[in-house]
C-alpha cells in the first residue's frame, strides 16, 4: 500500500510571527520547518508501509523557500515529495488548500492519505475532511490509533469521553492527532539520503486546479490577556469551595 502524507512547512514557532499589512497574511520566511504535528503523520505512514513495502509520499502546498521542512520529512524516511508552489496561491483558505492537495494526491496511486488534524500556523482544522470529500473517499478523523488490514482501515477516533472505533474501506483519508505514534529521530543516513530524493514541484497550471472563492481576513484582534486565577485560602473548608467551583464548571 502506498501512503500519501500531507505536510506543511511553517515558520519556526520559536520565532515571532509577522502578518502582512492589508491582507493579514502570514509573512513566510525563506527558512521554514516541518510543522511538528506533521511528524506524527509521517511516522504513521512509515510504520504502515514498513511491513508491506509500499511507499510514503509527502505532499505539501506553499512557498518552497529553502525546502528545509520537506527535507525534514524525507530525512525521517519518506520516499519522495510533491510540492505545489504558485504565487497565485498566496493567502489560500482551507477549501483552496484542500482542492490543490486533492489534485496533487489524485496524480498518484494511494491506499491512504494521512494528515495532521490541523496546522500549527493556520489552525483551521478542516482541510482533511474537505480533502476526503473532494477525493470522494471516507474521512476518518482525530485518530489516536490507526491500523490497516486487507483493504480496510480502522482507527480510534478521539472523543470527549474516550474514543470510537471507526472502520472504512480503502482508499481513505485519516487525520491523526499528535501522539498517535512517537515520531522517530531522523537518522544520519536519512538526513544524508534526503538530499538525493525527488521533490516534484508543481504549479496550479500543472494541476489544473482552481482556487475557491476568496476568503478575506478582515481584521486581527489580540487574544484577551489572561486574568489572574482565583485563590482559595484553606481555613479548613477549602475543599468545599473547590468542589462547588468544579460543580459550577460542570467538571463534576
Amino acid at each position: 500500500m502506498n501512503v500519501i502524507v500531507c505536510v506543511k512547512q511553517i515558520p519556526d514557532p520559536a520565532t515571532p510571527y509577522r502578518l502582512e499589512e492589508g491582507t493579514n497574511w502570514l509573512i513566510r520566511p525563506e527558512e521554514q520547518i516541518l510543522d511538528d504535528t506533521d511528524r506524527y503523520g509521517v511516522e504513521m505512514g512509515l510504520q504502515l508501509v514498513e511491513p508491506s513495502g509500499g511507499t510514503v509520499t509527502v505532499v505539501s502546498m506553499g512557498p518552497a523557500g529553502s525546502g528545509q521542512g520537506i527535507r525534514q520529512a524525507l530525512a525521517m524516511g519518506a520516499d519522495d515529495a510533491i510540492l505545489i508552489e504558485d504565487t497565485s496561491l498566496r493567502g489560500s483558505d482551507a477549501l483552496t488548500t484542500a482542492r490543490v492537495l486533492a489534485a496533487a494526491v489524485g496524480r498518484r496511486e494511494f491506499g491512504l492519505v494521512i494528515a495532521g488534524t490541523e496546522s500549527t500556523d493556520g489552525y483551521s482544522g478542516v482541510v482533511p475532511q474537505m480533502l476526503a470529500e473532494i477525493l470522494d473517499v471516507p474521512a476518518l478523523t482525530y485518530a489516536t490509533k490507526v491500523e490497516v488490514d486487507e483493504g480496510s482501515v480502522t482507527i480510534h477516533r478521539q472523543t470527549v469521553a474516550g474514543y470510537d472505533v471507526v472502520t472504512s474501506s480503502l482508499p481513505a483519508v485519516v487525520s491523526v492527532t499528535a501522539g498517535v505514534v512517537e515520531p522517530r529521530y531522523p537518522t544520519f543516513k536519512g538526513i544524508m539520503d534526503a538530499k538525493k530524493k525527488s521533490i516534484e514541484t508543481l504549479s496550479m497550471g500543472d494541476l489544473g486546479a482552481e482556487r475557491a472563492p476568496e476568503q478575506l481576513v478582515l481584521s486581527i484582534v489580540d487574544a484577551a490577556e489572561r486574568t489572574a486565577g482565583r485563590k482559595i485560602e484553606d481555613d479548613g473548608d477549602a475543599h468545599e469551595a473547590i468542589v462547588a467551583l468544579l460543580a459550577e464548571r460542570k467538571v463534576i
Binding site: 529553502s66 528545509q68 527535507r71 525534514q72 530525512a75 529521530y185 531522523p186 537518522t187 544520519f188 538526513i191 544524508m192 534526503a194 538530499k195
Partner: peptide, 14 residues
C-alpha cells in the same frame, strides 16, 4: 549548511 544543521539538531534533540 542545512544538512549540518539537520545532523546537529538530530543530536541536540536526542
Amino acid at each position: 549548511s542545512e544538512e549540518e544543521i539537520m545532523l546537529r539538531d538530530a543530536v541536540r534533540t536526542y
